[in-house]
Simulated assay, not measured.
Amino acid sequence: MMEIRHATNPVEAKQYTTERLRQEYLIEDLFQPDQIKLVYTHHDRVIVGGAVPVKETLALEVPAELRTDYFLERREVGFIAIGGPTVITIDGEEHLLQHKDGLYVGKGAREVSLRSQDPSQPAKVYFVSTLAHQSYPTAKIALAEANPVHLGSLESSNERTIYQYIHADGVQSCQLMMGMTLLKPNNIWNTMPPHLHDRRMEVYLYFDMDEQARVFHLMGEPQETRHLVVKNEQAVISPSWSIHSGAGTSPYTFIWAMGGENYTFKDMDAVAMEDLK
Rank of each mutant, 00 (worst) to 15 (best):
M1I: 04
M2W: 06
M2L: 10
E3S: 03
I4L: 13
P10R: 13
R20H: 14
R22A: 15
Q23K: 15
L26N: 10
E28Y: 01
E28D: 13
Q32F: 00
D34I: 05
Q35V: 04
I36C: 04
Y40I: 05
H43Q: 15
V46Q: 10
V48M: 08
V48P: 01
A51Y: 06
L60G: 00
T68D: 14
L72S: 01
R74C: 03
E76R: 08
V77W: 02
I80M: 15
A81I: 08
I82M: 05
G83P: 01
P85M: 07
V87L: 11
T89Y: 04
D91W: 02
E93N: 12
H95N: 13
L97Q: 03
H99E: 08
H99M: 07
H99R: 14
G102R: 00
K107Q: 15
G108Q: 08
A109Y: 02
R115E: 05
S116I: 08
D118V: 03
P119F: 03
A123F: 07
K124H: 00
K124W: 00
K124P: 00
Y126V: 00
F127Q: 00
A139M: 12
L143C: 07
L143V: 07
E145Q: 15
N147K: 15
H150F: 05
L154E: 08
S157D: 13
E159V: 05
E159F: 08
Y165H: 14
H167N: 11
H167T: 06
A168R: 14
V171F: 04
Q172C: 02
G179E: 02
G179T: 02
K184W: 02
P185D: 07
N186M: 12
N187V: 03
M192F: 15
M192W: 12
P193D: 02
P194G: 05
L196D: 06
V203L: 01
Y204Q: 09
F207P: 02
R214D: 10
V215D: 07
F216R: 15
H217P: 04
E221I: 08
Q223P: 00
Q223E: 14
T225G: 06
H227D: 09
K231Q: 14
S238M: 14
S238A: 11
P239K: 14
S242E: 04
I243D: 02
G246W: 10
A247E: 11
S250R: 14
T253E: 05
T253P: 03
F254E: 01
I255A: 04
G259P: 09
E261H: 15
N262W: 13
K266E: 11
A270Q: 10
M273I: 14
E274A: 04
E274Y: 07
D275E: 13
K277F: 03
